[in-house]
């Protein structure tokens, strides 16, 4: 069957309940909307309030999105071990997995995976809860799917005012960590895929 090149990027955020995956997905989708892009976002979570599997799928596109569901992700953000195990096979051929640093030891290195210490960075900022926003920052830095300004505005629109300063700081940290990971020789590979 033929394939059709579409100007779109498919993103999957995965982790466990309470890690802020749902909010992260909505913030990223909101950022794409502010950027004037088309987006389809769908979330999936278990019946548990905490610790169940959680994932948010997004397609961000310049044109109309016909089929709105992600089967293979160009960018896969993994914040937990079960998410890694379950979704690593859904990474597309040229896809990039962005995973929590603590998983490196067990999962091993691969050219398709970049490990970032989200948890450590979040704890340094005060709470492990910020790892979703740090993850979003790193994902945005690596994928270039949305602009930083829109992402900041989306965080402002969706995050409670008491924690806004910390969340915006988390976004900056995420961008920094993400940029550090862009290896010059393959950086262009993602840049084209994303925009």
């Amino acid at each position: 069957m033929a394939t059709i090149e579409r100007d779109q990027v498919r993103i999957r955020l995965a982790g466990r309940g309470s890690q802020g995956i749902m909010l992260g997905g909505t913030i990223l989708a909101e950022a794409a909307v502010i950027d004037g892009l088309m987006v389809a976002e769908i979330q999936e979570f278990g019946p548990e309030a905490r610790l169940g599997a959680a994932k948010a799928d997004l397609i961000i596109s310049k044109g109309q999105i016909a089929f709105p569901v992600v089967h293979q992700a160009d960018f896969l953000l993994c914040l937990s071990r079960p998410a890694y195990v379950r979704y690593s096979t859904t990474l597309s051929m040229n896809g990039l997995m962005i995973a929590e640093e603590t998983l490196r030891e067990e999962m091993g290195d691969s050219f398709r995976v970049t490990y970032i210490p989200f948890r450590a960075a979040a704890l340094e900022l005060g709470k492990e809860l910020y790892s979703n926003i740090i993850g979003l920052g790193a994902l945005a830095a690596l994928s270039n799917a949305v602009t930083k300004e829109s992402l900041q505005n989306a965080v402002r629109a969706r995050v409670e005012t008491e924690t806004l300063t910390e969340n915006l700081a988390a976004l900056d940290i995420g961008y920094e960590l993400g940029y550090k990971q862009v290896p010059q020789q393959i950086g262009s590979r993602w840049a084209n895929a994303a925009r």
Binding site: T26, A29, A32, V33, M38, V39, A40, E41, I42, Q43, I65, P68, V69
Partner: peptide
């Protein structure tokens, strides 16, 4: 379930 839960602009 999908159309009900999807978010679009």
């Amino acid at each position: 379930g999908v159309i009900g839960h999807i978010r679009e602009p």
